[in-house]
Design a protein around this nucleic acid. Sequence first.
DNA 1: TGACACAACTTAACAGTGTTAACTAGGGTG
DNA 2: CACCCTAGTTAACACTGTTAAGTTGTGTCA
Lengths: 196, 196
Amino acid sequence: MTPFIASDARASILEAASAVFAEKGVDGVSMRHIAKEIGVSATALYQHYDSKNALLAAACKAGFAEFGAQLEATARAAASPLDALRGLGGVYVDFALSHPMHYDVMMIRPHQWALGPNPEQDPESFAGLIHVIEACQTAGQLRPGDPREAAHLLWAALHGVVSLAIAMPGEIRGLEAEPVRARANALVEAVIASLL
Amino acid sequence: MTPFIASDARASILEAASAVFAEKGVDGVSMRHIAKEIGVSATALYQHYDSKNALLAAACKAGFAEFGAQLEATARAAASPLDALRGLGGVYVDFALSHPMHYDVMMIRPHQWALGPNPEQDPESFAGLIHVIEACQTAGQLRPGDPREAAHLLWAALHGVVSLAIAMPGEIRGLEAEPVRARANALVEAVIASLL
DNA sequence: TGACACAACTTAACAGTGTTAACTAGGGTG
DNA sequence: CACCCTAGTTAACACTGTTAAGTTGTGTCA
């Protein structure tokens, strides 16, 4: 039987899945829905992905790849390590606001689908962040100390701002880019100041 | 027919629901499961709660009530407004770590169940935080400025630390109270310093 | 006391979910 | 040609939230 799914089956399934859940949210993704989008029966997807979890894990992985590339490019383009650090914050916020659903799966509730601690999902992004911090320290732009701890503080600050913006209801919420970015900046500067 | 559910039906259902999902996580809560816990058919629950969402919303509300009470008590007992602010941070972390599942429903993904922006879930906790910040400002312990913005920064910082601890898989995660509290402290102090 | 209403609860059912099992069509290779 | 493998199919299972209709006990009022 000629395959209905295009040459690279896994990729086109993943694409359809991403499209569906970027539109309807993570909870709106059902195997049958994705399958219908491609024009195929639901069980066909299991030929290419072991489970819905595996499919979402793949979406995470792809998201992290794009995210990591953006981070790396920004870090590389920065004039100084400290500027790189600030740049990473900006990229973080931009990515989260422009891919809120991916951010949801990747960062807000990954445990719902991960089969347990998954090193592939401990993004190299984190390692990259640590590198930049170490560079700041050796350049004397940040005081010496455990870079992992500093990275955690920065990540937590950014994650807090962004995930409140994405996940919270009511007046507290706000998905408009500008104020979120401003808050993230303020927090990052506060953390940097505490690490000078 | 004599009611199987105790005198205060709503309360005992809520209690059973909280017990189930404190143990199995939010995603492990099913109406049938809760009902079996009480010894009743699943549809009986609908006599007392319109939907599963309504039930979880009630759990949120109860959680916020307890949370708010703890916050208020701590604020009241503090020697100075700034100490109160630090105390709130401690209570926030303690609550989240000792009720991670409630924190999940209340803070990490409330939108999954909220019927839309729900003023009842914009906790007075937030208003309380703003009050404390205003007190700091009028006492000269914090520089003047929009207290809402300051509150948002503090909240985001705490939420970031705590939700990473609760939700993230892998080595980054850590639910042991001590390092989480240390990180939260560090972040709170950094934010306070930026608002001095 | 009898009739009625109401509350609490029941079972049966619907539409939807992820997932498995068994089956079918078609192409590539021995 | 026989074979197997790949990609797809339908049917089914066990679950989910939720609705509809029926049952049963209790309290109230004439």
